[in-house]
Design a protein around this nucleic acid. Structure first.
Ligand SMILES: [Zn+2]
Ligand SMILES: [Zn+2]
Ligand SMILES: [Zn+2]
Ligand SMILES: [Zn+2]
Lengths: 146, 146
DNA sequence: TTAGGTAGTGTAATAACATAACGGTTTATG
DNA sequence: CATAAACCGTTATGTTATTACACTACCTAA
């Protein structure tokens, strides 16, 4: 369920080559922290983790790294909890659909079916809306917590 | 597209009768401010509006009123912008689907089709997830802004 | 090789969003 | 009236996110 760091780094490097950017230590560290946690983390959770090795880190460093990782499609944000999560489906382009457990706080990312995607596009079109991206977040109780 | 205040108040009163609660001045005022604005508002936008008539109002007052209005299904929260919006589809129970314009900031609420609802339920079920509620927020550019 | 542009960083300050906790008041009901 | 539940005001604080500015690192092309 969790992408290995090496694979994520590889994707990051490909993104960098195509966009004149670099996978700097800050960015790599934030990615590694998120991968290690196996849980969604808030920016300030990440900040605390960073500080254990580099005590002077400040919020903008984290938010900048998160912005990079989101642009590179390696990390998704969870709008309804203000957290961030490593992508579980790097292998193909996708919009995430997230299952957020209200008990344990874990979040499972599942692929948005083409059927659903088509429906969303259609409903946007019906309303003359030019769709750029979407957030689909389901809240409930995961299998483990029932 | 916008519910008249009188109708919203009527719904609020019905909710109150069924739940041993009251549509107090604070609650009514917050609702009226949201209706008047014809736009999504942040809690602090509402706070500012309240202060023009009642300068000592503090954040908890607003958040409490918003909680009440959300419980009564008169107001939806927009997770991706930290704003609040009067419901446009009181006539039947529903989960909202929101079209958020990145240009003008307006948000259109459209009914989530039964088809979509069924798909979401099914995908939750497939993953052993007990679905409680969901947030579906589409970001893009509205008809007016194109 | 060096000048200039773009990407990236550190830091301080502050903005923006949200809740906890407490004590008091109002309202409905028996 | 006594009681319980809903409601409110207030202080303080917690949490999330951004602005602004000065600076450094890296690449590329004259
Ligand atoms: Zn993903
Ligand atoms: Zn769980
Ligand atoms: Zn609605
Ligand atoms: Zn617009």
């Amino acid at each position: 369920m969790q992408q290995p760091l090496a694979y994520l780094v590889q994707s990051a490097e490909r993104y960098c080559e195509q966009n004149r950017q670099r996978l700097t230590p800050n960015r790599r560290d934030v990615l590694a922290i998120l991968v290690d946690s196996h849980m969604p983390m808030s920016a300030y959770d990440i900040l605390d983790a960073m500080r254990s090795k580099q005590p002077s880190v400040k919020p903008p460093t984290i938010y900048r790294a998160l912005k990079f990782l989101q642009d590179a499609k390696l990390v998704h944000s969870i709008e309804s909890t203000n957290q961030f999560l490593v992508c579980s489906h790097l292998e193909h382009p996708h919009q995430p659909q997230l299952l957020v457990c209200q008990v344990c706080g874990r979040v499972e990312e599942i692929p948005l079916s083409e059927h659903m995607q088509a429906h969303l596009n259609e409903s946007a079109k019906e309303h003359g809306f030019h769709l750029i991206h979407h957030a689909i977040e389901l809240h409930g109780i995961c299998q483990n917590c029932q």
